[in-house]
Amino acid sequence: MILTQVSQLSRRSIVRLLRQPEVVVPALLFPLLIFGFQAAGLGPAADIPGFPADSYVDFLLAFPLVQGTLFAAVSAGTDLAKDIETGFLDRLSMTPMQPLALLVGMLAGVICLGLLQSVVFIGVGLLVGVSFQAGFLGALVLVLLTALTALGFGGVGAILALRTGSGEAVQGLFPLLLVSFFLSSILLPRDLIQTDWFRVVATYNPVSYLVEGVRSLIITGWDVQALALGFAAAAGLIVVGLSGAVLSLRGRVART
């Protein structure tokens, strides 16, 4: 029963996503646009003494890969908020639905978007000459890490949706989340951040570890420490996101 529910709800969230090109296209283009601007404008940063990569493009490819997951969060949150606004969630609550099934099913769309994004971004990276130091296997690990990150942020988006019940509120938080991405080692490695408070913020910001894990596969090869920290950050995000979302969902579908 729960497997049927999960698979049907997953199908729904994926179908729903693919039928909304106005969600999918910006999720692919916007990160690439910023990537293009930053990579070109900051290209000379590779000449900073001590810079870890040969080219800034190689270094920055982690940017769209991680930043794209933000769209996953917002799209998952917006979809769930719409379900609350329209009463669709109430309709599902009338069935013997398992809250966890709803959540997992809903996040299937998010993971799907995350996978699509990482494949496209890696493809673009290859086109502009990025070489993956960790090779093909590394690229697979990279896709896995970004998909997990998308799942975690999707849970965060779901929490916001379930707490506020408003799609506008979820989208209004997009800039805030975007800021949190920039206040990390996403544009420069942490040891090259000079401003003290910025370095401290970036050190505590889990986004830094997600970025560094993804990045290590591109510019370093197999860096066990960076990968362990990256997957740990993703796992932490998933635990916080999903458990928070399940709790919020229990409150939202307060059936007797």
Partner: peptide, 8 residues
């Protein structure tokens, strides 16, 4: 208000 998903 019919609670439906416009995309399905």
């Amino acid at each position: 208000e019919a609670a439906l998903d416009p995309f399905l």
